[in-house]
Design a binder for these strands. Structure first.
Length: 264
DNA sequence: TGTGATGTTGAATG
DNA sequence: GCATTCAACATCAC
């Protein structure tokens, strides 16, 4: 379920569970999601290391190790963390687990195996290599405008582009478009600076609300689009317009006809 | 039982 | 080289 606010929650969970902990051993059940090492090499690299903290950027969570290296956790579509002591609490789709010296176990679950786990010598080099953009919570208006002005793709396409800004995914992109009354398929070069500014404002507002309230979607305020998301044909929030489904930037997309405009 | 899924990538194309 | 599009990835749930 992970977009920026959800990964923020993972960070809180991870920090409480793992910071200051020393890894006694690593149990790997399926090394498919470990993208730059074999299972045994991964276990070897982590054994004996102490976790000193973590850094989140967009949907990427970097665990910091006492040797200056990092462990990247990217949750894909279905990644999750699970702290437990007793084997009976191990989840069915755990792919690997860190066994700490105090007996606690931190499992990484991932049914669909779209997660990406990498052992990194240098986190910042990696961030440069994948061209990961500024965090969607922090991006300045100027950086945003400079990055997107004049683009020929859709507004949803740029919101999902992690090298422009990091953290927005399919659900929040629709939420942001709904709030600004802009159709997700509107071409960026058809939008005014005012509209692009409101996209920036709402992006930061949505991400901030999500991280500060650490809620689950169903707890979001009544007037959020999320509540009618995926409910094609239903009235929009507050009874205005009608929810429609389409495809934008290769992703299933919902918007409210009669509320969101496809500017020319 | 076929289809779609809160994501990213690399190849192909312009 | 850059911008953009899109199929592919692996598996589960409805």
């Amino acid at each position: 379920m992970p977009e920026l606010p959800e990964v923020h929650n993972f960070k809180l969970y991870f920090d409480a569970a793992a910071t200051g902990q020393t890894i006694a051993s690593v149990r790997v059940h399926d090394d498919y999601i470990i993208r730059n090492m074999s299972g045994p090499a991964f276990a070897d690299a982590l054994a004996g290391r102490t976790i000193t903290g973590s850094l989140r950027r967009g949907k990427y969570l970097f665990a910091e190790l006492d040797n200056g290296h990092s462990l990247l956790l990217h949750f894909g579509m279905t990644g999750d963390l699970n702290l437990y002591q007793d084997e009976v609490d191990r989840h069915k789709f755990e792919r690997f687990a860190l066994h700490f010296t105090d007996g606690n176990i931190l499992g990484f679950d991932d049914p669909r195996k779209f997660a990406r786990i990498l052992y990194l010598h240098d986190r910042d080099t990696y961030i440069r290599e994948i061209k990961l953009g500024p965090d969607a919570l922090d991006i300045s208006l100027q950086t945003w405008l400079t990055a997107v002005r004049g683009r020929k793709t859709t507004i949803k396409g740029v919101l999902l582009n992690q090298s422009i800004l990091a953290g927005v995914g399919n659900l929040y992109a629709d939420e942001i478009c709904y709030r600004t009354r802009i159709h997700p398929a509107a071409r960026v070069d058809s939008l005014t600076d005012e509209q692009l500014t409101s996209i920036h404002t709402e992006t930061v507002a949505v991400m901030t609300y999500g991280t500060e309230n650490a809620p689950y979607y169903k707890n979001y305020p009544e007037n959020w689009f999320w509540h009618v998301w995926r409910q094609e044909g239903k009235p929009g929030p507050e009874g205005i317009g009608e929810v429609k489904i389409t495809k934008v930037a290769g992703r299933t997309t919902y918007y409210v006809e009669g509320w969101q405009m496809l500017v020319e």
